[in-house]
Write a protein that binds this DNA or RNA. Structure first.
Length: 703
RNA sequence: GCCAAUGUAGCUCAGCGGUAGAGCAACGGUUUCGUAAACCGUCGGUCGCCGGUUCAAUCCCGGCCAUUGGCUCCA
């Protein structure tokens, strides 16, 4: 239950990325006030211990509070007891939090005197407070909060007295950029948490323990679901072990059945494609290049050899040819050239790095020379580059392009569990949740504008169907839209299409009554999108699924269908991935179920355990195993001589969903004793009934 | 990528400037048992990697790699 509270705080956070208004601030809960006040008290303690500390900002956050600090001393957890002891004194003194309203001039003067975020005026100005001051809009009152000697620039609100901070604890130290901008100085961020009383604090730490217990990395390891072999395979490239792969298979089966019934067709595409693919799609010239693995360069050796062999004449020829190719670019201001334009395989970005200014002058002279142009074309052109695909859409677009399309073919729904590779920054990798290889539950729906609403809605319905199967009750659809400022930069420059498609999506959401929040300036570069945000039971938030409109890329690939009026038109495209990626989805499911998967998903569905290895028991048990296996149940047998207690302990530890215990009594009665993981012995039943029930539960994907 | 912490057997973890230890797992045996662990034995380690200091380094120092917690980024 507590977890839901955290979840709702997160939810709020998602909605309020902008600066808080004073109204918002007044809505701060008591707990948030306690935490925000604790941040002030912590700052007080720190500045007492290290008088030269400079403070930036110290808000309450979902699980506590932090304060960003600049300090030559590196604070480590070893310093926490000392800081906490100082905090205790402040709290014991029970200072009131006094609100002081000042003029902007006064505030600036105090900040320059180093009086803000300090116990008294200091030699050094409160430089970050000066910066914070700049962010306060004209007309908004400027206030301090004073507790004891400590005065801080702060809009509040606070608890009445420091003594109201019932229980607190510092938790971690991290780093953060001032105002979250990596161009700004890097500060030390000290995290802590605070509660009304000790009991709640203890509960919180208990909850953290529980979260640790459910962590998918821990359970994944214990259950043998996946392994990450950083030495031989690489970081962020999980290996699915047989038990994890079993879960992948079940999810794929679910997706394939669901998509088949919804009229999708399956395709298969290679993992790599030529550079041209991503130059055309816009992924490379735009913002995506860094998140793709660097290219594989083919026939590089041949290329280099030719370069080496070429004599002076050839070098001149090459240069001249290059200049000729580049003439239009050199003569026009660079702004006139589309980011995705390329010459002989050189991207514009690359050309800019490549052409020194003097080359142009040289070029005029070189133009006088005569040459035959067949030699260098090959030498001049860049070697072939192949990229590992970071997304499936371009391949699917080429499948669309592979055959002539009529309006009668639409909507065309191409589905694939495609494997993509994304070069996540090393610091981003996180168990299964953020990886570099991912199996995506991908599909692209090509449709006409008049079909859009129905198709988009059908996708949303599919999400809801899945959520029901997995018992996901808490989710938010985040509707990400563009921003006028981003046009032509972050977003393809089609303001009219943006507006149209955003309106279409909004209408579908409103009509279907699905709860959503609209987030401006977070769309994909090719269109608005919906991200489905969920929370695992331990409060970890992430984007599971995504549903995106694409009105831009199909045109770049020249995709058309022949419409009724015998003209060619460009289809709209919907990218959708309701089950996200295996990696993230299974990571989520592990935490969601704490590894105790429902029967249909459980890697170990059934284990048949005999009391001992007597032939009578084994001869009775083996056919049961055989029958289950023949019906595609993941079943194992333990007919060993170990004590039944030990065999059960082992099966429970492995989280085997259903244990069938067989002893002499069962053989006589034609029964098996059923034990369910986590529930214990549920008693003996006729074996036919048990088998039938297992098969039915799997088929129905019972929770 | 940035900041910090961490890295000892398959797993969980102890330990220390003088050539490394436990439990579990694995393997071999004994045990034939009614719902979460019977007993004995054996195997297992370049103490993340590379370099430096030292008579001597798993331990101290530096670099690298990886993981973790954050930041930034994000599909």
């Amino acid at each position: 239950m507590r977890l839901c509270i955290f979840a709702s705080l997160r939810y709020k956070k998602a909605m309020e990325s902008e600066r808080k208004t004073l109204d918002d601030r007044q809505k701060m809960t008591e707990l948030e006030r306690i935490r925000h006040s604790a941040a002030h008290v912590m700052a007080t303690a720190i500045v007492r211990l290290w008088p030269d500390a400079q403070f930036a900002s110290g808000p309450a956050v979902e699980n506590g509070f932090y304060y960003d600090i600049e300090l030559s001393h590196r604070i480590s957890p070893e310093d926490f007891p000392a800081i906490e002891a100082e905090m205790k004194k402040e709290i014991k003194a029970n200072h009131t939090f006094e609100k002081i309203t000042v003029t902007r001039e006064q505030a600036l003067a105090d900040a320059k005197a180093g009086r803000l975020g300090a116990l008294s005026a200091r030699g050094a100005a409160s430089k970050f407070k000066i910066g914070n001051l700049e962010d306060i809009p004209e007309g908004e009152p400027i206030t301090y909060y004073k507790s004891g000697d400590f005065i801080d620039l702060c809009a509040g609100p606070h608890v009445l007295r420091t003594g109201n901070i019932g229980a607190y604890k510092l938790t971690t130290v991290a780093s953060a950029y001032y105002k979250g901008d990596e161009k700004n100085p890097q500060l030390q961020r000290i995290y802590g948490t605070a509660f009304k009383n000790k009991t709640q604090l203890d509960e919180y730490f208990k909850m953290l323990e529980e979260a640790k217990r459910r962590d998918h990395r821990k359970i994944g390891q214990e259950m043998g679901l996946y392994a990450i072999d950083t030495e031989f395979v690489g970081p962020g490239l999980p290996l699915w072990l047989p038990k994890g792969a079993a879960i992948c298979e079940e999810l794929e089966k679910l997706a394939k059945e669901t998509e088949f019934q919804a009229g999708y067709v399956r395709v298969k595409t290679p993992h790599i494609a030529k550079e041209k693919m991503y130059l055309t799609s816009g992924h490379l010239p735009l913002l995506y290049a860094e998140s793709m693995f660097p290219p594989m360069i083919l026939r590089e050796e041949k290329h280099m050899t030719k370069l080496a062999e070429s004599d002076e004449t050839n070098r001149i020829r090459r240069t001249r040819a290059l200049v000729e190719q580049l003439k239009p670019y050199l003569e026009s201001p660079k702004g006139d050239i589309g980011a995705s334009d390329s010459v002989n395989g050189f991207t514009w970005k690359k050309l800019r790095e490549f052409i020194p200014d003097h080359l142009k002058e040289m070029g005029d002279q070189l133009m006088q020379l005569s040459f035959e142009d067949d030699v260098f074309n090959e030498v001049l052109s860049e070697p072939e580059r192949y990229y590992l695909k970071a997304m499936n859409c371009p391949h699917h677009h080429r499948i669309f392009a592979a055959e002539p399309r009529s309006y009668r073919d639409l909507p065309l729904r191409l589905a694939e569990y495609g494997t993509c590779y994304r070069y996540e920054q090393s610091g981003e990798l996180f168990g299964l949740m953020r990886v570099r290889s991912l199996n995506m539950n991908d599909a692209h729906i090509y449709c006409m504008p008049e079909q859009f609403a129905q198709e988009f809605n059908a996708v949303n319905e599919m999400y809801l169907k899945y959520f029901k199967i997995f018992g996901i009750e808490k989710y938010v659809m985040r509707f990400s839209t563009s921003s006028p400022e981003g046009m032509g930069k972050k977003y393809v420059n089609e303001p009219e299409l943006w507006k149209q498609t955003e309106d279409m999506v909004r209408q579908v959401l409103i009509n279907s009554k699905i709860p959503y929040v609209e987030v401006p300036n977070e769309a994909a570069f090719y269109g608005p999108k919906i991200d489905v945000q969920v929370w695992s039971v331990i409060g970890r938030e992430f984007t599971l699924a995504t549903n995106q409109v694409d009105f831009a890329i199909p045109a770049k690939f020249g995709l058309v269908y022949r419409d009724k009026d015998n003209t060619d038109k460009t289809p709209l495209c919907i990218h959708r991935a309701p089950l996200g990626t295996h990696e993230r989805f299974i990571g989520f499911l592990i935490e969601h179920y704490a590894g105790n998967f429902p029967l249909w998903l459980a890697p170990d569905q059934v284990r048949v355990l005999t009391l001992n290895d007597d032939a009578a028991l084994v001869n009775y048990a083996q056919p049961i195993v055989n029958e289950l296996r023949a019906n595609f149940v993941r079943v194992s047998a333990d007919f060993s001589t170990d004590p039944i207690k030990a065999k059960i302990a082992e099966a429970e530890k492995a989280k085997v969903h259903t244990m069938l215990v067989i002893g002499g009594r069962d053989v006589e009665a034609g029964a098996v004793s059923v034990r369910l993981h986590g529930q214990g012995n549920v008693g003996a039943k006729p074996k036919g009934e048990v088998v039938a029930d297992i098969l039915a539960a799997i088929k129905e994907r019972r929770a």
